[in-house]
Design a protein around this nucleic acid. Structure first.
Lengths: 194, 194
DNA sequence: TTTGTTCTTGAACGTTCGTTCTTGTATAGT
DNA sequence: ACTATACAAGAACGAACGTTCAAGAACAAA
């Protein structure tokens, strides 16, 4: 008997995610979200108990489930090797250089802005890093088995290094979206691998 | 004939720097600064025309001039080699693991929070990265000349990679201040160098 | 001692923040 | 057709924001 909802919560979360991504958490006001989604405060708060913070957490979840897999591409598939790791980094650079790529990565931004004061955010970020490391490790192991990289490479240690490089790439790209610099960083990360 | 100032502007900047460092720009209110410095709003605004934003820029300058050189240590001296680069990274890890180290690096935090929307901040961050790269490049050149690292190493490219790793280290450390992880990252950054 | 200048102080400014509440509306079961 | 229920809309809330202003105070030159 209730009146049906006139908006799709997932679509609202999608829009909120884009806002947080572009401007950051504190710089995005609830009014910004109301304007961007077209959903009025009352409806927003009844659909998302917990308000602005709940919308951030929902956005991070959605980012992990939709945006990250898309960026991982074939690196998420079984059988991925160094070539797919390299393709992932090339994709990061391409994104950073595109006009829409300026916001970088929502998870990096949230790690810096919120992780220290918000254990929930920190947990999501840790999960993301673990997932990245896992993909890298698996791919490096595959590559080593196939003899595509030197046997001396330690997949786990090297994967941790690649995680750090990917996060650092986002920081450098924020202040200096210069293709030469970013490509040099990626090249040096793959030294001794390809 | 004027009444003398009762506070030291540099000391105020020092306190402001620590506040921005610990909580971020938007999360630090002018009232926080008033409380931390003991300087009332009127005096603050007359000593620092431009208000909160001017205090941020002043803090970044002060950070670059005082905190960064201290962290660079002997890496800033002529004659520095790989050992000093390694010592710099070990210092970063040590800082991240200490209780006071949680805020990470003010310049990384500002790059993520403000660089995209604030060209002034972006310029300071770019300057910092250039300075870091320069120190690394010089040290790697020295090391190569002394035969301490393989001649195949490209000092400039490798230095850019080390800059990215140092920035990524801060992001990872924010969400996961785990000594094993951070040390593995540093180890992998020095693979093929020592 | 008087005067001029710049300081300190803290109240006050208008704005914007995140959130809640009130009022009216659309719908499905009776 | 009526009623119960959840929703839509946006006004309204107190608190906090960054900033300015008005008043008195402290010093140095005259």
């Amino acid at each position: 008997m209730p009146r049906p909802r006139e908006f799709e919560p997932e679509q609202v979360l999608d829009t909120a995610m884009r806002e947080f991504w572009a401007r950051g958490y504190r710089a995005t006001s609830v009014d910004d979200l109301v304007r961007a989604t077209g959903v009025k405060p009352g409806s927003l708060y009844s659909a998302f108990p917990g308000g602005k913070h709940a919308l951030l957490m929902g956005s991070l979840e959605r980012y992990s489930k939709l945006v990250v897999p898309q960026k991982l591409g074939e690196l998420g598939d079984p059988g991925a090797s160094v070539a797919q790791v390299r393709a992932y980094f090339d994709g990061l650079v391409r994104d950073l250089l595109s006009p829409e790529g300026r916001p970088g990565c929502l998870l990096v931004n949230s790690a810096i802005e919120n992780a220290a004061a918000d254990p929930g955010v920190a947990a999501v970020v840790r999960g993301h890093h673990a997932r990245l490391e896992n993909c890298f490790t698996t791919a490096l192991r595959t590559a080593r088995r196939r003899g595509e990289i030197p046997a001396a490479v330690d997949p786990v240690a090297r994967a941790k290094g690649l995680v750090a490089t990917s996060q650092g790439l986002m920081v450098v790209g924020k202040a200096n979206p210069d293709g030469e610099v970013l490509r040099a960083i990626v090249d040096s990360a793959f030294a001794g691998l390809m």
